[in-house]
Design a binder for these strands. Sequence first.
DNA 1: TTATGTGCAAATTTTTTGCAGATGG
DNA 2: CCATCTGCAAAAAATTTGCACATAA
Lengths: 147, 147
Amino acid sequence: VRPVSLSKLSESLREQGYRLTLQREIIIEAVEAVHGHISVDDIYQQVHPRFPQVNLSTIYRTLELLEQAGLVGHSHFHDGATKWHRAGEGHHQHLVCERCGAESELELSVVAPLATEIRERYGFAANLGHFAITGVCQACLKKGERP
Amino acid sequence: VRPVSLSKLSESLREQGYRLTLQREIIIEAVEAVHGHISVDDIYQQVHPRFPQVNLSTIYRTLELLEQAGLVGHSHFHDGATKWHRAGEGHHQHLVCERCGAESELELSVVAPLATEIRERYGFAANLGHFAITGVCQACLKKGERP
DNA sequence: TTATGTGCAAATTTTTTGCAGATGG
DNA sequence: CCATCTGCAAAAAATTTGCACATAA
């Protein structure tokens, strides 16, 4: 059951000359639906009920393609897990708690000065968005005060 | 052939009640020797000639132990590779080029303000050192100007 | 002596790949 | 039609684990 109007990402895929398959649409939908980051396996779990024959390989291949097309990006979390997210303008950084796993958003304006500084000092174009910032959240810090 | 004076890391291990084995010393040496980050496999390659029977499992287990003891830490690189480095005071952040792999050091003072900002705004204790900062280095940026 | 650590081989987990058949444009 | 995609099954790469033997203290 194909949606009447394609998402912006899907349109963009086609504009770039890639074929628009049902699998790709479904995977794009899954990535668009998350508020934050999603793993390959999460996508698989989410997609499987609706489209049982969708294959893990296809998810890997599709994400790689979407990344090339500039539509999604991936990051590595504290434990090394690879997670995917929408790319582009609105891409916000995330703070992820190492202890409880809670994700919260970080305004880009907070990170931007560091990128600028690194650019000025070292001529290095830092890709700060590539990693979620890990650490310990407020709640867990409090719990930890008296261990 | 055991060195006459043990490294600080080795001493610290023993102080914490862990046993000091030849394997652990060798692995510690390998981590101390690098200026930057080192992968499990790099360690293996480096250690193997001198101590052929040293096992990969032991390296994994030792690094985990050393991390618990607060003597080393690990980071995830752009491609997801896990790399290890000395922990502690002098721990400097690294800039790693996504294109050519070049590593350069980043003064902690450059990063510190971001950690402070995140702490103040969100009460979140960011572990910024956990990841190498990836991006594109000056040399590669120049090459890329006319692709 | 004995709790701890190691080697080895096998199991897991995650990701990649070759290929024959399916399908979008 | 036919270049591109996909499913499948198998391979590769990275990491973990169980267990018998070795060893630091």
